[in-house]
Design a protein around this nucleic acid. Structure first.
Lengths: 343, 343
DNA sequence: CTGTTAGCGCGTTCAT
DNA sequence: ATGAACGCGCTAACAG
């Protein structure tokens, strides 16, 4: 039935010892060609498969890598995971996925479960940062488990990161709006407790400043990343005495809400108002009025994160590798902000 | 450093035996309250964590469940996985994800890797069916590993399935188009080697037949699920002497291509032409002209698949459970097919 | 109630 | 070139 054949079974059949079988299978150099071939043949016949669990217990390496994301059904995260899986699969690693749902308790729980499962590495996108969380992260580092942050980073000794340059993304988006002739650019921002949102904001500020445009408090609105929040914020902006003529949103979903509200109020895009989002969610391309946005090349991000892990785990020097890979964001100019007939 | 404390460590500290510690930790009834408490306290102090790998080797149960999907960055699949993870996490299981990329070799490879990793169950969406693949699937069943198909099913003895009623989906979509006054309904179909696509087609046929509408060969076009294929197919349809006045597409992406092509040719939707897709991809809701489609409630599908697994694995009777859960598809009527001012 | 022993399947010394 | 013995960390069977 469900009985596996072990190296003992094939040893018995061949009247040799399990150790020999083990060695033959691992292509140990000092095994006679004859027995090696015999072992391989018999293993094949008996449909032998190495028991990963035994190997893992013995070696302390599970050949599993844990990935923690807020939620998997968000394009950027599933795309990253796709990249990770693709580059890890070929190296014999399997990917365990965990969702934190932006809940700190859950995230810590996931971390401990992964440590406990003896994963060989952890690749994660942080949610919020708290002291409790930092302890959990320290636990990973202390155990010597390679840890890589992507997207939502944080500078921690011994932790590698793969991110895009969010500052540059914010800067590019804003500069582009300015180039389109917009003067009064509002920013729909995420929670500044999360670094990436703060960075996008800083990029926005810098671009304004570099162009001699004054920043206005009332043009900065914090939102969660829901469509409705974009509508609400936009409604608020349009009620101001001095209205903005463009929005740079740190989230595509919020930008979508903004566009919906603008159209509902009969405002012409991009003639009278320009909008740029962030993340290149798939739907942005498919909208009738396609949305300009910043692409984060999430799949590459995943592939690179996987490679950083592999380097780290392969590296037998005692020197700790700590890589900081920063990808360049790409501005995708689409209908929602292109007044000039480019594209 | 990375040294874990084991039950031996805490046994030594307490001058008792490891077995006692193990029993205390697992709340074995015949352990004195005193030692139990002592053990728990010391375990806490020494920051003990049960080694899952050792447990797995011992018990043969890894507490991992494998999930195989064609690709993870497709909304329906990531949504299913989200549901699976949510319902399995609380039961202490971890989810290993694999991508088949619709490549048979890769899929078989994944199956064997999962068996090999001693997963306690496998939840998967089949790609194509071949004899080679069937062997791999038989291997799973023979090992007694609970196996659950979702979305893309296949009737196999001992395998549970969680699907939506694709026939009904096809029927509903087509009937809806007829109700809108469409008479010449084309169908952009997927590969009939995959059951779900055949079922959607059958539903389409049945609806036509039930309404006394004759089926036309030239109105059936097979496509892959790419946007461009929808454009191409639509271009072909519009070249026919007798043009269709509606399209039911088995894929949202193909339906999108159709809409793009129709608009490019200046055809008014939904006045002159109606379109219904399938899957409720997120972008369908966000299009300027939102697209009617069939919702598959993928997250529920995942949750149910997880529950079926849990039932199966909990079930200690020797009776094999084999469940067939069929969810009802929901027709979402949106702009691309609603001529009546509903909604 | 607790200790002793054994074994899950594998790789790895230490012998030979 | 191969065998014997051991241990990874844990639980379970069998004492007592």
């Amino acid at each position: 039935m469900g009985d596996r054949t072990t190296i003992y079974d094939i040893a018995k059949r061949l009247n040799i010892t399990a150790a020999t079988v083990s060695r033959a299978l691992s292509n140990n150099s000092k095994i006679s060609k004859k027995t090696r071939e015999l072992v391989f043949k018999t293993a094949e016949e008996m449909n032998y498969r190495q028991n990963k669990l035994a190997l893992a217990l013995k070696s302390g390496k599970s050949n599993n890598v844990g990935v923690i994301v807020p939620r998997i059904d968000r394009n950027i995260f599933s795309a990253v995971i796709r990249g990770i899986e693709e580059n890890l699969h070929s190296e014999g690693y399997q990917v365990i996925i965990c969702q934190s749902h932006d809940d700190e308790k859950l995230e810590i729980e996931n971390i401990d479960a992964l440590i406990n499962a003896q994963v060989d590495g952890i690749i994660m996108s942080l949610t919020l940062e708290t002291s409790e969380k930092n302890k959990a992260i320290k636990r990973i580092v202390k155990k010597g488990i390679p840890l890589i942050f992507f997207d939502r980073k944080k500078d921690i000794e011994g932790v590698s990161t793969v991110t895009i340059n969010d500052f540059e993304g914010g800067y590019k988006a804003t500069q582009h709006l300015i180039d389109q002739g917009c003067k009064e650019i509002a920013h729909l921002a995420g929670d500044f407790a999360i670094e990436i949102y703060e960075d996008r904001y800083k990029g926005y500020r810098e671009a304004l400043s570099d162009n001699g445009i004054e920043f206005r408090e009332e043009f900065l609105i914090h939102t969660s990343s829901k469509v409705e929040d974009g509508q609400k914020a936009t409604r608020a902006l349009l009620k101001l005495k001095e209205r903005p003529d463009a929005i740079f949103s740190a989230s595509d979903f919020v930008a979508l809400g903004a566009i919906q509200e603008l159209r509902a109020q009969g405002i012409k895009i991009p003639q009278d108002f320009c909008v740029v989002g962030f993340s290149n969610e798939p739907f942005t391309k498919f909208m009738e009025l396609s949305m300009s946005t910043i692409d984060q090349s999430p799949r590459d991000m995943g592939k690179i994160a996987a490679n950083v892990f592999l380097e780290q785990v392969t590296n037998n020097d005692n020197v700790k590798i700590q890589k900081k890979v920063v990808l360049a964001p790409e501005l995708l100019i689409r209908d929602s902000s292109s007044r000039l007939p480019i594209k």
